[in-house]
């Protein structure tokens, strides 16, 4: 059974891209969210094996979303998606319980690597 993924990013463009990368590699994208609030809601709804989480988003940022998701499910696997220049935030997210991170611009191989590693952990 294909691992299920929830994609969180405020840019539709990025969501599409991640979706394409992951679905090509046999993952099942079970949901998308465009801000932190939505992400937490969708997580509770679809309980995905993995979440890819953008950091800078409206309503609620990715860090707060990680905190809330981890509170709901301490075993949640979350992969941060960050652009350059966000190191402190990446670290904060990792401390909040995120498993790993990937840096935009994405290379599909890196995305897949990070996703697979996070799932293995």
């Amino acid at each position: 059974m294909a691992p299920t993924v929830l994609i969180v990013d405020d840019a539709l463009f990025m969501r599409m891209m991640i979706r394409d990368i992951l679905s090509k590699d046999g993952f099942e994208v079970v949901g998308e969210a465009e801000n932190g609030v939505e992400a937490v809601e969708r997580f509770k709804e679809v309980k995905p094996d993995l979440v890819t989480m953008d950091i800078v988003m409206p309503e609620m940022d990715g860090i707060e979303a990680v905190k809330q998701i981890m509170k709901f499910d301490p075993n949640a696997r979350i992969l941060m998606c960050s652009a350059m220049g966000q190191q402190p935030l990446v670290v904060e997210a990792l401390e909040a319980g995120a498993k790993d991170f990937i840096i935009k611009p994405f290379q599909p191989s890196k995305v897949i690597e990070a996703v697979e590693k996070a799932l293995k952990d």
Binding site: M1, P3, T4, E28, V29, V30, G31, E45, V46, K47, P48, D49, E113, E116, K117, L119, K120
Partner: peptide, 27 residues
């Protein structure tokens, strides 16, 4: 080395989320 073999192994080890049993609605 990371690579295909490592991932193949990972495949079998992949934990399956409790809700992944087909109930996940795709909207």
């Amino acid at each position: 080395e990371t690579g295909a073999q490592a991932f193949e192994k990972a495949e079998t080890e992949q934990p399956v989320g409790d809700a992944a049993a087909g109930a996940a609605p795709v909207r």
